[in-house]
Amino acid sequence: MLSRKEATIRILLSIILGGIVGFEREKVGKPAGLRTHILVCMGSTMTMLVSLFMFYQFQGKTNLDPARISAQVISGIGFLGAGTIILEGPTVKGLTTAATLWVVATIGLTIGIGFYYIAILSTAIIFLVLGTFSKFENIILKKHRAKTLVIVFKNSSSSLSKVASILKGINISLNETQLDFSEDSSVTLSIKLPKINSKLEKNIIEELLYINDVEYVTLQNSSKYEN
C-alpha cells in the first residue's frame, strides 16, 4: 500500500503539472483555465489513488480491477470538455481547450499510478504544442486551407436571390451554407468555398458588393479553430 508521503507527492505533482497546462490556457483567456485544469488533474490522480487503495485493501478477497474506476475518467471528462466547445458561424471555438482537459485528466491518472516520467514529459510536450505549434500551423497551412465566404445583407428575398444567383453563376455550390438572422433586419450567409485562386476570390467579392443590399463581404479560413 502507498505511504502517505508517496500519496502526497502524487497529489502535489498533479497540481503542478495540471497548473502548467492551465496557466497557458488562462494566459490566452480561455474559460477553462488554471483552476479548472488543476482540479481535473488532481481529481484524476485521486481517482487512480482510490483505485489502487481499493485494490490493495481487497487484494485476495475479491476480484477487483484497479483500472475500472479510473477508466471512467476518460469518458466522463468528455462532458466537461464539451462545455468549452462553441460554434460561432464558421468558427469552432474551444476544441483545443477541450483536448487539454482530456489530456490533463490522463496526466492525472498517469501520476496516480506512479508513472512520473511520462507525466512530466507529456506536460512539457503539451506546453510546447500549445505555445508554438499554432504559429507554425498558420505559416505552413495558410495557403492550403479552404475558406468561408461571409456575406452580410439586408433581410429580403430579393437580396438573397441575387446573392444566390451570383454564386451559382460562378459554379459555387450552396449545399454547405449557414444563415444567421440578426435583430437589425440583416442576414449573415456563411458558405464554404472550394480552393480557388486569389484573383477569383477578389472577383467574387467585387460582384457581391455591386448588390445594393449587400453590406459586408469577407473571406475567412473555414478551418479556423479558436483554442
Rank of each mutant, 00 (worst) to 15 (best):
G131P: 04
G131H: 15
G131M: 12
T132I: 13
F133N: 07
F133M: 09
S134T: 13
S134E: 06
K135R: 09
K135Y: 08
K135F: 05
F136Q: 07
E137M: 10
E137V: 09
N138E: 13
N138L: 03
N138K: 14
N138C: 00
I139A: 01
I139W: 08
I139C: 05
I139K: 10
I140Y: 14
I140M: 10
I140D: 07
I140R: 04
I140V: 13
L141Y: 14
L141H: 01
L141A: 06
L141G: 02
K142G: 02
K142P: 01
K142F: 11
K142S: 13
K143V: 04
K143P: 12
H144C: 02
H144M: 08
A146L: 14
K147H: 10
K147P: 07
K147C: 03
T148D: 11
T148S: 14
L149N: 13
L149W: 05
V150K: 14
V150R: 14
V150I: 15
V150F: 03
I151Y: 00
I151F: 02
I151C: 01
V152R: 14
V152N: 13
V152T: 14
V152C: 06
F153G: 02
K154A: 00
K154D: 00
N155C: 00
S156N: 14
S157I: 15
S157N: 09
S157M: 10
S158A: 11
S158T: 14
S158F: 12
S158I: 15
S159A: 15
S159L: 01
L160Q: 15
S161K: 13
S161R: 13
S161H: 10
S161I: 11
K162M: 13
K162S: 12
V163K: 00
V163M: 06
V163G: 03
A164H: 12
A164F: 13
S165D: 13
S165F: 12
S165I: 08
I166A: 01
I166R: 04
L167D: 07
K168P: 03
K168E: 11
K168H: 11
